[in-house]
Simulated assay, not measured.
Amino acid sequence: MATSSQPRFQFRLRVYRDGGIAIGPGKIALLEAILQAGSITAAAQQMGMSYRRAWLLIDELNRALREPAVESAVGGARGGGTVVTEAGKELIRLYRGIEATAHAAAADDIAAMTRMLAD
């Protein structure tokens, strides 16, 4: 008898603006990866994407916000680097908070749907 894995419910919040995704799960995950890795290059590698793709996503995100989520410094005495700004950290916090609130609000319906799934 095969055992089935537990179902996983995931909310995928996207904020659209001017025909594109201003804020979405990929951009938030990239911000989190930059926080962890300390650079766009390392974050892109961690996520399996090109540096150019990561840079374009960050550029799109920064353009959509009043304050940048990420700031980069070119080389110099300290060698440059990338930092997630306070605005970027707040964006992550808000995004993940909305996901958690939605999940909690839907908990009864999620449980009911889970019971409908085959074993």
Rank of each mutant, 00 (worst) to 15 (best):
75 G>R: 13
40 I>V: 14
57 L>V: 00
98 I>M: 08
11 F>I: 06
115 R>T: 11
80 G>W: 03
8 R>S: 11
94 L>G: 02
32 E>P: 01
28 I>S: 02
31 L>Y: 11
4 S>L: 05
114 T>H: 03
26 G>Q: 14
107 A>D: 06
113 M>G: 00
109 D>Y: 10
34 I>H: 06
118 A>V: 12
13 L>I: 15
28 I>L: 09
24 G>D: 10
83 V>H: 05
30 L>K: 06
31 L>D: 07
111 A>P: 07
99 E>R: 04
2 A>I: 12
105 A>L: 06
82 T>V: 13
117 L>K: 04
48 G>N: 12
111 A>T: 14
12 R>M: 03
68 P>G: 12
46 Q>D: 00
84 V>W: 06
33 A>E: 04
36 Q>W: 06
76 G>I: 05
115 R>S: 13
111 A>G: 07
72 S>A: 08
39 S>E: 04
106 A>E: 03
38 G>V: 08
34 I>E: 02
38 G>L: 08
58 I>L: 10
114 T>P: 03
72 S>R: 14
85 T>R: 05
19 G>S: 05
88 G>E: 04
49 M>D: 01
28 I>W: 04
116 M>H: 11
116 M>I: 01
16 Y>W: 10
6 Q>L: 14
4 S>N: 03
110 I>K: 11
101 T>Q: 14
116 M>T: 14
57 L>M: 15
67 E>Y: 07
10 Q>Y: 07
71 E>A: 09
28 I>D: 02
43 A>L: 09
73 A>M: 03
66 R>A: 15
84 V>S: 02
110 I>S: 11
29 A>Q: 15
119 D>S: 09
43 A>V: 09
7 P>L: 09
86 E>P: 03
77 A>R: 10
6 Q>T: 14
3 T>D: 10
19 G>V: 08
99 E>G: 02
104 A>F: 05
24 G>C: 09
37 A>M: 12
12 R>E: 04
76 G>N: 06
39 S>F: 06
19 G>T: 07
82 T>N: 13
50 S>L: 04
54 A>F: 03
28 I>V: 15
26 G>N: 15
87 A>K: 13
14 R>A: 07
115 R>F: 00
56 L>E: 15
52 R>Y: 11
118 A>T: 12
56 L>T: 14
94 L>C: 02
114 T>M: 02
10 Q>E: 14
110 I>N: 09
92 I>Q: 01
100 A>H: 13
34 I>K: 07
57 L>N: 13
